[in-house]
Design a protein around this nucleic acid. Structure first.
Lengths: 339, 339
DNA sequence: GTGAAAGCGCTAACAA
DNA sequence: TTGTTAGCGCTTTCAC
């Protein structure tokens, strides 16, 4: 186990002061008017011995850790997993590492996690915030930490966020079902006061109401566990035999919904037409293919990281927070077409 | 933006030396025979003002970062995403944070990433290693870093790894197809020299050979991009019209395979029987449901983190590396049953 | 039982 | 143009 070289070792070996080395390594040679010759000699030696500055020490000194904290609801959910992947790529390209964690939409867990991230001196936060976390986020912002929210935002908290047009998405999807001639359209979602969920419900309700149809909203308690979602779904189907179309509010519920429909032998679209939020392989490959509200995952990730990097590079600027709202794409497939 | 308290602030406020504070905070009060009274006073004050030691400084001093580096092939792949989720939970429970990254199975990218992790002083490494990374891993180990591999291992590199019985898995799946009466069974996989892939091919070949059947292996160049996988798959189906059963070597290929079959109007199991490695919603919900080789994801994650924590807690022990091989579960569904 | 002080490796103000 | 030096906040040896 060879000992790691420090800047002092380099300085001694080259008979130069460590300051000079530091300047050269940090690209400030020009500014400090250090001779090209020296710069070259140093760079060559550094490359040769493979010296890498200790980033911990650097962080301690500069207060920067080049780390971004990413908090999602559940990293194993395909929506968040794909966002995470894209954010990771872009972050690494810009010299940032990602520490991630799953909040499970649990407020107190998230508070702990924020504490850990803070403790780790992450430079910035990207999160899909759970309910009730407003104060913690505000305190983060007050302390000058860049925070970018996505998938939802916190009304009242002034910070940047990237989200999609949830209201229009479900409105549009519901309208599509209505146009197809379905009359008894249900919306199944997680019980939640989060903005994205509230908007999704509202979009659905606006649409059914505008056509004088009955609104049937089934709210399920948030849970990662499939069985806990499927139980109330089974009940729902039994209690509402007259439903002829259903809109699922998230990919997780959509997948569980399809499973329950399978169990019960209900076929789309003949028994019940189906649309789900989010577009994944499960929906594309299903028989029949399931109509889905596709989120622009790449654009979301791009915007998130772009906004965060902007804030990171320009800490002082207290420019007005940006709210970016992206469009979704209703991918119409057989599951929602009236025969 | 309130200034963060340091141990010195606490010491001054309490008129005690920072050493004493440090001892108390690190649970060495007893050992150092510090008066209970003082301990209490310090603890009370610390709790009151919400003082948290600067972990960066602590890491710099102790060399421990309480961070684990997790390197998977692609965090957005459901297999790795679910493993990541489980590892995350267990790591956090034990006071460790996770920094993750996706290797894309790219050797030089992985080398960079290892460099970053090393630079960040992660305490331990969990990885699904790409090919050609042997030396880097060995150098990690030589430097005393705990490394646990999973999903595959590197022959010749002496370190702990957790994997599944790949050979038996595909052997068993192939046997199942043979028992069902299929005669022209193909195996479609990524071209790779990685242990898990080699074993999967071998399991398949052993099975077909043992029954005197022809072996048809289609190797596809590794790629995350679906289209790049689907193109050779389309060719394969066209060039091999007589295939009556197919075994997909990974979930990604399996999913793409189903898509191509959809395009071409080929139905399982009547046109071609299908089995895929890994068991996910796509396969469960498919019509017909797809027979799958389910990996024990939880057991893998559990074992990985257990072994790593053991090594972390007992650095000195150069106990013989553990190789844990777990069983898979062939979940037989309609896609592989002869009508 | 407690405290002084060295030092982990680095940056940057200030000197020279 | 380069070097000296003072910390960043913490742990730990050694002395009292």
């Amino acid at each position: 186990m060879k000992k790691k070289l420090s800047i002092v070792d380099i300085a001694n070996e080259l008979n130069v002061s460590k300051t000079t080395i530091s300047f050269i390594l940090n690209g400030r040679a020009q500014e400090k008017r250090i001779s090209n010759e020296l710069v070259e000699r140093v760079m060559k030696y550094v490359a040769e011995v493979g010296y890498k500055p200790n980033s911990l020490a650097k962080s301690l000194r500069t207060g920067k850790s080049n780390t971004i904290g990413l908090m999602v609801e559940d990293i194993s959910n395909p929506f968040f997993a794909s966002i995470a992947r894209l954010i990771e790529d872009r972050a690494y390209k810009n010299g940032y590492k990602i520490i991630y964690c799953s909040t499970d939409n649990d407020t107190s867990k998230t508070q702990d996690l924020i504490g850990m991230f803070r403790d780790r001196h992450v430079d910035g936060y990207i999160m899909a915030p759970p309910e009730g976390i407003e104060e913690d986020i505000e305190s983060l912002i007050k302390d000058g930490m860049p925070v970018v929210l996505f998938d939802r935002h916190l009304p009242g908290v002034k910070t940047d966020f990237i989200e999609i047009d949830n209201l229009f998405s479900t409105y549009n999807a519901t309208k599509h079902l209505i146009e197809q001639g379905f009359k008894n359209i249900a919306f199944v979602t997680f019980a939640s006061h989060q903005t994205q969920m509230v908007d999704r419900v509202k979009g659905y309700e606006d649409a059914v109401k505008s056509d004088g149809l009955k609104s049937t909203v089934k709210e399920i308690v948030f849970n990662q566990d499939e069985e806990q979602i499927m139980v109330p779904l089974r009940d729902f189907f039994k209690e509402n035999p007259n439903i002829d179309a259903i809109l699922f509010g998230t990919n997780h519920i959509g997948t569980c919904g399809l499973k329950v429909m399978n169990e019960l032998g209900k076929k789309a679209p003949t028994d019940i037409a189906v649309i789900s939020f989010d577009d994944y392989d499960v929906f594309k490959l299903h028989s029949p293919p399931v109509t889905a509200i596709a989120q622009p995952v790449e654009a979301i990730a791009d915007n998130v990281i772009t906004v965060l990097l902007e804030k990171l590079n320009d800490r002082s600027s207290s420019a007005k927070p940006q709210s970016i709202v992206l469009k979704t794409d209703l991918r119409i497939r057989n599951s929602s077409l009236k025969k």
